[in-house]
Structure formats: structure tokens, C-alpha cells
Design a protein around this nucleic acid. Structure first.
Lengths: 181, 181
DNA sequence: AGATTCATGTAAAAGGTTACATGATTTC
DNA sequence: GAAATCATGTAACCTTTTACATGAATCT
């Protein structure tokens, strides 16, 4: 139940519409918390009911009215409460690992191909994160406060993707070696 | 929608009851695919309807009848099909990263404490995986086939937990340094 | 005697995905 | 003129989580 909280963090960085939030969830914040626009619209509505955000409509010139959301005091209080609350470590759902574990029951070569494909996707993400880091944080050593926090999260993404690329490489080497015998 | 497939992989390693599967999902297979007993019971029912598993009841001496499940040919065919099918890389839901990113909006010290707690949990898991590896795969270099695949998945768990421990350490060092100023 | 394990399930609520629907504005 | 972008939403469906419920067997 942290979509609300991810939205509050994002809105605190800058107020915006549901549509804009959905785009942010496709990029920065979405790298570690995914959400679709339908989820976001529904959640924003609930958050207005809870008094966590305020919404002021800007009558559109023809387009649907823009509904710009901003965090309210109750929302900031809720965030503060949640930040201090202990949470569970993430529940992992690693589909590719299930495939590797089941490889001997199907076509091992097909699983090798799938691992190779994922290796490529993770390497791409790793590059994207590194490019983002180089662009937005050219001198990471001097960061403080919010900018430091943003950078640390990006570092987490880099580490996660790096670990995945290395694991894929280990799997590929081992499975290819095993096939050769 | 891979719970069915994770169950098929597990049942292929050994037939068992829903209850036994739930216990396996608390251990080995659950390290990379979590599931509760309710999910498993419901999914097993659906899988019987689909003809993917067969179920024979053993009348219990007093206890509820044991329903032992085994993969059927249609289930093995489905697994083979699924193994070759391309899948998406995992959608990440990293609650702790949201907290780090939002740290400046609440009590940074509380977030530091939470990161330290997670650091401990991930270090524990890492130890558990390493112990499992040492016990079940004392000589990893000579593995082939299914045993190799199982070992590779465990290696993925080790790498993931290692990356998380290191990230937590980086975050802790940076946040403590920042607080000191 | 009390706790834990084995073994099954129902039901409600919450959360997430997919498909459909609309319509103006801006860019190619 | 077509495609993409901005901007909102409804509805149906599927999946997941949480709480409740039962009861024998075994272990401490």
C-alpha cells in the first residue's frame, strides 16, 4: 500500500496532474515503483477523499479540464508517519529464475535465449541509469538533502541492474558449458 | 501469471499436497516466488480443471483427506510452452527506495533506522542462502542438469541479497555523513 | 495441559491489469 | 492528413492479501 506514498513523494517534488504523474511513473519514480494511469487516477481520487491531497481544476481551452494535485498537510503528516513505520523487505517475484529452475523440463536452448534477451534488457537499463546519473548528478560527492536521497535511489537501481546482468552472464556461461558436454 | 508454472516446477521435483507446497514456498522456491497457502489451494483447483495436474485423495486417519497433486502431461506441455515464451523483466516495487527518496519530508533518522533494519534482514538472508549452498552444493563446479539449474537460481538469490546489503551500506554511510554536517 | 504441525478451506476486501472510450491540440 | 501527445475516465476482470474457521496428531 505504498502507491499513495510514492505519489505523495512525487507531488512534493512538484505538483501535477494524474497524467503527468503517470509519465513520471514511466521514468524516474517508476524505476522502483511501477503504476499505470488507471491506478494513479483511482488512487488520487481516494487521496482527495482522505484529505491527503488537494485538487484544483484548471478549465481547459477545449481539452478536458486539468486537475492539478498538491499534497495537503494531512498527506505530509501521513508520509512522515509512514516513513518511520517498519516495512517488510520486498517480496520477490522472479519469473526468469522460475524458468531457469525449470529449464530441464523443457527446451534448455529456449531458456538460454530468454536469459540472453533479459541480459540485454538489463544492460540497457543499466546504461540508461548511468546516463541519467551522469546528466543529473555530475558531481555526486557534494550532494546533500533531497538531491542526495534522489541520487542514492538511482545508485540502488544501478546496483540492482548490475547484479542482474552479472547473474545472467553466470547463468549463460554455465548453461552453455553444460550443453557442450 | 507464473504461480501455476512455479507450482508445476515444484511438483515435478516431487509430488505433494497444497500444504506441502505452501511450505516449499516458504523456503527454496519461495525465495524467488512468494505465495500463500490460499493462493496455492485456489490455483491447484484451477490447474485440476485445466488438466495440468492430477489429484488423488488419500483418506486420512481422522485428519482432512490428503490431496496429493502430480503434474499431468498437459501441465508438462504447458510448462514447455511457457519456458520458451518471452516474458517481461520484473516490475520492481521497492518500498525502501521510496522511503529513501522521501526521507527529507519526514524524520531522516527514522529512515536511517529503517535502512539499518533492512540491512540486517538482507544480511541474514544472504547467510541463509550461503549456508544452503554450502550444504546442498558443496562442489558446485561439477554440477549438470537440474541440480545445476537449482544452484544457479540460488546464486541469483545470493547476488541479489549481496547487492541489497551493499546498497544499504552505501545509503547508511551517505545519510550519516550528511546528518553530521 | 498447551503449543505446534498437518491439512483443508470460505469470504471479503484490496489492489492491479486490460480493454474500451472520448476528444482537442500539436507535430510531421 | 495522419500520428502522437495531452488529459480524463468507466467497466470488467483477475490476482493477492487478510481474516476467519475447523479439527486431529504430535511434541514439549
Amino acid at each position: 500500500m505504498a502507491l499513495e506514498h510514492a505519489i505523495l513523494v512525487s507531488l512534493d517534488e512538484r505538483a501535477g496532474t494524474g497524467y503527468e504523474l503517470a509519465r513520471r511513473f514511466d521514468r524516474s519514480i517508476g524505476f522502483f515503483w511501477a503504476a499505470t494511469h488507471q491506478q494513479i487516477y483511482r488512487t488520487l481520487k481516494r487521496m482527495v477523499d482522505l484529505g491527503w491531497v488537494t485538487c484544483h481544476e484548471e478549465a481547459g481551452t477545449g481539452r478536458p479540464d486539468r486537475k492539478v494535485y498538491e499534497p495537503a498537510d494531512a498527506g505530509r503528516a501521513e508520509l512522515t508517519r509512514w516513513l518511520a513505520e517498519p516495512g517488510e523487505p520486498e517480496t520477490i517475484r522472479h519469473e526468469l529464475a522460475v524458468k531457469v529452475r525449470g529449464a530441464s523440463l523443457g527446451d534448455v536452448a529456449a531458456v538460454v535465449a530468454e536469459v540472453a534477451r533479459h541480459r540485454g534488457l538489463h544492460a540497457e537499463r543499466l546504461d540508461a541509469y548511468r546516463a541519467l546519473g551522469a546528466r543529473d548528478f555530475p558531481d555526486p560527492s557534494g550532494l546533500t538533502g533531497r538531491r542526495l536521497h534522489q541520487h542514492l535511489v538511482l545508485r540502488g537501481g544501478v546496483r540492482a541492474e548490475q547484479a542482474l546482468v552479472e547473474w545472467c552472464d553466470e547463468v549463460l556461461a554455465a548453461l552453455r558449458e553444460d550443453t557442450r558436454r
